[in-house]
Design a protein around this nucleic acid. Structure first.
Length: 271
DNA sequence: CTCCTGTCCTGCCGGC
DNA sequence: TGCCGGCAGGACAGGA
């Protein structure tokens, strides 16, 4: 994504094809007309949203949902829109940027650069784990008084921004904390470990280009990023990587459901 | 207010 | 072999 952003920065949008009316929500009114002729000035990220700043003072906001992708096609590539290609931006140099999302869980917004933070998608978001001020102290403060499980608390975007179901399981594993533990009991050194684990897991995920569903395949039939392997997620019954030889004692990685979502953890390693 | 459940959408997978 | 129910993800609404 970062490489893609660098290639688009400074580029001018020549033409926009919007191929349906909505995803989870309707596309912004007159989106193509409002994008055509605009320059991408810079790209940023907040939580799971991509922010593409334009030269007219607006920001194009993209959320890829779970199966969504942005695909960059060089000018010489021949292109025929596929079923789930919803937005096709043709740049002035002929490069195409295609927003494709088979499950239509994605989101596209067009907001003023001066006030995008006020939009409901952003106004209650908690801290960015990769910012300098995110540490064990800040995390413990956010968890104070929370009677829900630490798993549920980390899924709450008001407490920490940008974690989803997969990375919550992974971060709790790295920190050695049980997903069933009450959120308010995560304090002190334990909170510090968790904050660091969240940072590590997120940084690695971003470096790897994110994850995707195991069933996702791209246009050429290649498997998606799900080959990026997880320590516990999706590994019910397998040996815990932290207590390798103990599977006969522990039963390996366990799967439970919390707030309607699967959680994977090792009851031996995570307390 | 907090917590938790159901909904949206599609494609894959397992079971019959 | 083919069909179909169940499941997965993130955001959000609404109920307890």
């Amino acid at each position: 994504m970062r490489g893609m952003a660098l290639r688009l920065e400074g580029g001018r949008i020549a033409h926009v094809e919007q191929r349906r009316e909505d995803l989870r929500a309707p596309f912004p009114e007159n989106l193509p007309a409002r994008l055509e002729g605009r320059l991408f000035t810079k790209f940023a990220r907040r939580s799971k949203y991509i922010l593409a700043c334009l030269d007219d003072g607006n920001v194009l906001v993209l959320h890829l949902g779970m199966a969504g992708r942005m695909v960059l096609l060089p000018p010489e590539a021949c292109y025929t829109a596929a079923a789930h290609d919803h937005l096709v931006l043709t740049m002035a140099d002929g490069t195409r940027a295609v927003f494709t999302d088979p499950r239509r869980f994605g989101m596209v917004l067009l907001l003023p650069e001066s006030g995008w933070q006020q939009h409901k998608a952003f106004k209650d978001l908690g801290p960015e784990p990769l910012e300098d001020d995110f540490d064990g102290r800040a995390l413990a403060a956010a968890l104070k008084g929370r009677k829900a499980s630490i798993k549920d608390a980390l899924m709450n975007q008001k407490i920490v921004a940008g974690l989803g179901n997969i990375y919550v399981s992974e971060a709790l594993f790295v920190a050695g904390i049980s997903p069933r533990r009450k959120a308010y009991t995560v304090t002190g050194a334990r909170a510090a470990r968790l904050a660091q684990a969240i940072r590590d897991v997120l940084a690695k995920a971003i470096a790897a280009g994110g994850s995707s569903l195991r069933d996702y395949r791209d246009a050429s039939g290649e498997l998606g990023y799900f080959q990026h392997h997880f320590a516990v997620y999706g590994r019910e019954g397998e040996a815990c990587p932290a207590c390798l030889c103990e599977i006969h004692k522990t039963g390996g990685i366990r799967k439970i459901v919390q707030a309607g979502r699967s959680t994977y953890y090792c009851p031996q390693h995570q307390r």
